[in-house]
Nucleic acid binder design. Structure first.
Lengths: 211, 211
DNA sequence: TCCAGTTGGATACCTTCACTATCTATGTTA
DNA sequence: TAACATAGATAGTGAAGGTATCCAACTGGA
């Protein structure tokens, strides 16, 4: 198909598609002439993936590119892909020069018995949050996070269960990315609702009156 | 203290503080003369809160303002504050005209037995994620989300437990905000690490070699 | 009392991001 | 062959989040 059809079927404007091509988010089409190229279903799929990542999850274009690059590099390596592609995401982008809370994160990971790469960005993200909360006078130490860690463990079980039974390694990698990244806003939304529920339950007065 | 001291103690530049004052994130100081105002510890605390919300969590300035406004309006209402301030956050800002997946979210909430306000933004966020995953060919329905919902329930229990034993309603409100919002990146980080761990466990070859 | 330095307030400017518009040379299609 | 589509390049746009500069009013030390 040509670019206009790709645009029509994806709902993304031609100029934006050109922008994604320029930025390397979308691989170029097969050139058929100096001013003509042919796109296929893969491009359409990729385009939808890009829109989901940037739109739903709110990832920046450059983060999305990094993610897609990682995805392309590591296909055929099944589960391993997951950790690697995830490593490409950074929520906050400054490493802030190794927070002193890193030691606490080490302790937490050790206590949980997890095997997590030392350079995983998630470690820094966690340390940074601890540092922030502390500077705001919230005395949260790693012991408090332990039960959260146990729950995260069970969440991860559910996540990986979803990948079982898929044969094509390319598809495993893509689905892993989708579930890992796109499910995040959904899980946060669930947590919000659960909090609202639990809060009204404890307070026993708020919220819409029960039937 | 004057603005320069506020700047020095918070690590935020004077011009940026003025910007926050303009944008209404920070209440004005007590005017002592036409070109002089006095700031106190509350301002410093508020400034740190703003930096945590925008920096660590990546909230926009306008969302942060909405959140702080909600916080100020509802103090003295304890638990109720939590649901209300949380309602002020929106992850993705377009409601996208009621996704057809809204019915599924209703079913999920009903099955979980939760009491969640019908207009809670989390509902729309969840519906949008379902719609996106579906358009990408991931057949995720609300039954799949049920176990995630149960885990979210337990997370919410932990969240609200942290508010127990705090007397000052102002402090309860602020801590609720901090835990609800700032803990999010931490929980996502934990999930990432748990996934990496579980992935290497199942694959039994990746990751750094065990001792 | 003078005066360098600080402050509040206003306005203009800057940079990044994610697009969007326009242009040209080349193709395709009726 | 004329109308339209296309690739690729370059420039422009609007929002967000600050930053810089001015100015008049104030402060604190010599």
């Amino acid at each position: 198909m040509r670019i206009s059809e790709l645009s029509r079927r994806s709902g993304v404007s031609v100029t934006t598609i050109k922008y994604y091509l320029r930025e390397g988010l979308l691989p170029p089409g097969r050139q058929t002439a100096a001013t003509q190229a042919e796109y296929d279903e893969q491009h359409l799929r990729r385009l939808r993936l890009i829109r989901a990542l940037t739109g739903v999850r709110g990832l920046s274009v450059s983060t999305t590119r990094d993610l897609l690059d990682a995805l392309a590099r590591h296909t055929g390596d099944t589960h391993r892909t997951l950790g690697l592609t995830l490593g490409a995401i950074r929520l906050a982008d400054e490493p802030t020069a190794e927070a002193p809370e890193a030691g606490e994160v080490d302790a937490l990971v050790k206590e949980l018995g997890w095997e997590v790469h030392q350079s995983a960005p998630a470690r820094a993200a966690l340390a940074e949050t601890l540092a922030s909360l502390r500077s705001l006078g919230v005395p949260l130490d790693w012991h408090t996070l332990l039960p959260y860690g146990r729950l995260a463990e069970r969440t991860a079980l559910l996540d990986l269960d979803q990948l079982d039974g898929i044969e094509d390694p390319l598809e495993v990698a893509e689905r892993a990315l989708l579930l890992a990244v796109l499910l995040e806003p959904a899980l946060l939304a669930l947590r919000r609702m659960a909090q609202e529920n639990e809060s009204s339950r404890r307070h026993a007065d708020g919220g819409p009156q029960p039937a």
